[in-house]
Design a protein around this nucleic acid. Structure first.
Length: 165
DNA sequence: CCCTGATTCGC
DNA sequence: GCGAATCAGG
């Protein structure tokens, strides 16, 4: 049962459209869909004519406009939004949904710099990996690296200035 | 270094 | 049409 994954089926294209409109990055979408790289996703997005997302435009549309006639709004309310960095807005306002999307990271989804800490029984169908960002140069995220690289034993009295052992 | 999307071009 | 390689930028 070597199911062939690739090709842009209608479902996959729909999924792609949805995720892209939700504001996920190409690489995130690629991981979501599985079986494709971010290049493939970007390429498809262009072929579909979906390039150039809203980003700040979307929030600009919904943002309170400082009308000349209007006196001063409560500075408390008006200033924070207007002065807020785009990153903050896009993360908390534009695509909060994206952050809640969860997907089992299978061995096929694993990329370099994704934590490959195994989760679950390897023989079970729902076996997957942590998938969080791994520490550069290590196969695990900060959480799992702590577990993986615990010192065999803590030597509290080892004060030898020369080095190990 | 990590990442982002955009573009090119052989397939 | 597809997507790896590359480009340009943060």
């Amino acid at each position: 049962m070597v199911d062939t994954v690739p090709s842009w089926s209608d479902e996959r294209v729909d999924h792609l459209r949805k995720l892209w409109e939700e504001g996920l990055s190409a690489s995130q979408i690629a991981t979501q869909l599985g079986g494709v790289t971010r290049n493939a996703v970007i390429g498809k997005i262009h072929r579909l004519g979906l390039s150039g997302r809203v980003k700040s435009a979307e929030m600009a549309a919904g943002m309170p406009r400082p009308n000349p006639g209007d006196a001063v709004l409560d500075a408390e309310d008006a200033i924070p939004m207007g002065a807020m960095p785009i990153e903050t807005l896009s993360a908390s306002t534009v695509a909060p949904v994206a952050l809640s999307i969860t997907r089992r990271v299978t061995i096929m989804d694993l990329r370099e710099s994704m934590c490959r800490w195994p989760i679950g029984d390897p023989t079970a169908p729902d076996f997957h990996y942590c998938g969080d960002r791994s520490i550069t140069g290590l196969p695990y995220c900060t959480t799992h690296a702590q577990i993986a690289y615990q010192p065999a034993a803590e030597r509290k009295r080892d004060r030898r200035i020369g080095g190990f052992r």
